[in-house]
Write a protein that binds this DNA or RNA. Structure first.
Lengths: 146, 146
DNA sequence: TTTGAATAGTTGCACAAACAACTATATGCC
DNA sequence: GGCATATAGTTGTTTGTGCAACTATTCAAA
């Protein structure tokens, strides 16, 4: 058995994701304090659209590691907030291309700054080489299970 | 700036907790496949009650890193499933002491085995010393933000 | 001892996730 | 061309989360 060295408390933390939950909550509070009326989940969709917009909902599913109903409803809510719009594809009418509004483009800089700030607070006092190893392990975990 | 070395994809993963989400999903599937009719969140409450039962809902809040309404509803659902029962404290009538049923006691062995199995799959190919560093970093992150 | 603050728990609301079942469109094979 | 199958997206249901507002009980200080 390769890694059967789990003590109980640690097993619990790994499964429940205490650390990432804490990071997400802190970031959400920063959004709220800044008067940015979006959720972390909505931000995670915008995050990928800032990298490339005009992608399909299915591509958003893959990018955000969510299923199709989740993306449908996140896009619904982002549309209500006037942050994205669905545009039916000309070549394949099953597909919605998702585009950012000007309002959403304005959000990028502020929210990314708050995200970096949050991670800096989270990783304060952690040496950079340990952070690297941690990122590496989490990536392998994801690849092992996806 | 201590740890401002985030590349974008990594920032995203840290905040969204891709790895822990993947672990939780895998474990949920194992529960379902084994015919164990409980959610990961319900399991996380039972997990602490197996260590010590007869604790208050507030103590469950602290242990599971959830707020009071979340615990109220998780205990509601666990009670519907006949896995726990609320017992009003004699000394302080505001407090519910939460006790396990026999049915819940039977669940411990099987679910813990599936949880360990899941973590072994997740951490296959990861050297033990890197796992230790990862656990350490995640603990510091949690302590920095809580 | 009474009154105000703190604590334990519950309820309502909005948002999100997982699953199953559904519609609409496209594709490929005969 | 026509039908089976795959793909893109939507909807309904159950469960969970976070926040605010609420009730009940306890505690502490005037």
């Amino acid at each position: 058995m390769p890694n059967n060295q789990f003590k109980r408390g640690e097993l619990y933390s790994f499964i429940t994701g205490k650390a990432s939950t804490a990071i997400a909550r802190r970031l959400q509070k920063k959004f709220n304090a800044a008067g940015l009326n979006i959720t972390i989940e909505q931000w995670s969709v915008l995050y990928h659209l800032w990298k490339q917009e005009g992608i399909s909902q299915q591509e958003l599913c893959n990018a955000t590691f969510r299923d199709k109903p989740s993306i449908t409803r996140l896009v619904d809510n982002l549309e209500k907030l006037n942050l994205v719009k669905r545009v039916a594809s000309e070549s394949d009418r099953r597909i919605n291309m998702i585009y950012l509004t000007k309002q959403a483009q304005k959000l990028q800089e502020d929210t990314m700054a708050l995200a970096e700030e949050t991670l800096n607070e989270a990783l304060e006092t952690v040496p950079a080489d340990k952070v690297d190893i941690c990122k590496e392990v989490l990536q392998i975990v994801y690849d092992n299970l996806k």
